Structures are given as structure tokens and as C-alpha cells.
Amino acid sequence: MTMLLLTNSWLEWGGTALVAVLVFVETGFLLGLVVPGGETLLFTAGLLCGVDQLKIPIALLVPLLIVSAVLGDLTGFWLGQKLGNRLEHQPNTFIFKRRYWEKAKNYYRQHPHRTLLVGRFLPIIRTFNPLLAASSGMPLSRFLGLTGVGCVAYISTLVLAGYWLGQLFPELGQYVEYIFMGIVALVIGTLLLKAYQERNQPDA
């Protein structure tokens, strides 16, 4: 019971800030390649808002997360300008994988504008989008317009879908601690798996 009360209290007052930070760092610092579940995170945020576990109106939650996503993309764009072509020679690290970079780069070359609009729904593409746009020489104004539309569509769709489910089934609020622990287990499990693969297959 104590654990449940702590979880609920933390979600009520700190959950919104945590979600906003995670949305920002996903593309701002490439952490989307390490920490999984961007879509799951947004859907869950909407769900928790729908069952009144996040103490913020949905009309404020959606714009807040859109701003966080756009700021993350702008940070990634700035990093792309600073790094320039150095990413072409960047070796594999725990965060950066060349196969991911090549996959995203090939997709971006084929559909540069479409990638910024719909690439938000594609995990690897989403993370590398700002870097690719910057390294390709795309003007900041064009990037901001395209990524802004993509962020609005991506955030609104997932958050509102979760919110709708929470409103439709308010009894889901009884299981909020299990939802929270499931997300924690997903993140920790994936990080451990990636660390294991990095240690045993450094050239993969």
C-alpha cells in the first residue's frame, strides 16, 4: 500500500515533467536509440491523464509535449550543424550505431520532406531526423515548419488515443502502478539487453 501511495503521488506531481523531459532528450540527445518506447510513453501519458493520475488538463498536456518534442528536434538540429560530416566517420558506441545511421540516412535521402513529416512515427528515423536535416544543409526555417507539423501529428495522435482509452475505461486507474512498473521494466530490460549485446558483439 505504501508503494502504491508513493507511486501515485509521484505520478501526480512529477510524471508530467518526466514525460516532457524524456520526449525532449529522445531526439535532442539521441537517447531514443537507447531508451525504448517513445510511442508507449506518450500513449501512457494520455492514458494517465484520462484516468486523472496526471494532474494536468489534456488541453495543456498535448501542447506541452509538442513544445518538448520541437525543442528536442531543434537541439538535435543544432548538434547536427556542429558535428557536420563527422558522423560519417563516427564509430559504433553504446548510443550510436552505424547501421542505424545508414538506415536513417538512406530513408532521408529518398524522402527528405516526407521523413520530417511522418518520420516521427518511425523510432530510428525519428531520432536521427534533426541531425540528417542539419547535415543536408536544410534551412532552419524549413526544418522548423516540417518538424513542427510532424510533432503536432505524432504527439496529438498518441496522447489523445491514450486519453480516450482512459476516459472510456476509468477503472484502469486502479492498475496505474502496474502500468508504471511495466514501463520501468521495459526501459531497464532494454538497457540491460543493449549493454549485453554491446559487450559480447562490439562490432554488431
Rank of each mutant, 00 (worst) to 15 (best):
T40A: 15
P139Y: 15
L83Q: 07
G150I: 00
T27F: 02
K194M: 14
P130D: 06
A17Q: 11
Q53M: 12
F94R: 10
P170E: 04
Y178I: 11
L146P: 03
S9M: 00
T40I: 07
R126I: 01
Q197I: 02
N92D: 13
T127L: 04
L11E: 00
I95V: 11
Y178R: 15
E88L: 04
A45M: 14
R86D: 07
A161M: 12
F96N: 07
G119E: 02
P123M: 00
V176R: 02
G137V: 11
Q90F: 05
L122P: 06
V176D: 04
Y175W: 10
T40N: 15
F43T: 13
L65T: 04
N8D: 13
R98H: 14
G173K: 06
S141K: 11
L160F: 04
L11Q: 00
V21G: 02
P36K: 08
R99H: 12
A195G: 12
L54C: 03
T44S: 15
A133E: 02
L132I: 09
G37M: 10
V25I: 05
L83M: 00
Q167Y: 06
H113D: 07
G182A: 14
R126M: 00
L168R: 13
A45K: 14
F128C: 00
L31Q: 09
A20G: 08
I155F: 02
L116V: 00
L65N: 05
T190F: 08
A153G: 13
L193W: 14
F180L: 14
A17M: 01
T157N: 02
E177T: 15
F143M: 12
K55Y: 02
L48F: 14
W10R: 10
G148T: 00
H111T: 07
T157A: 04
G148C: 07
H113W: 05
L132E: 03
F43L: 13
L42M: 13
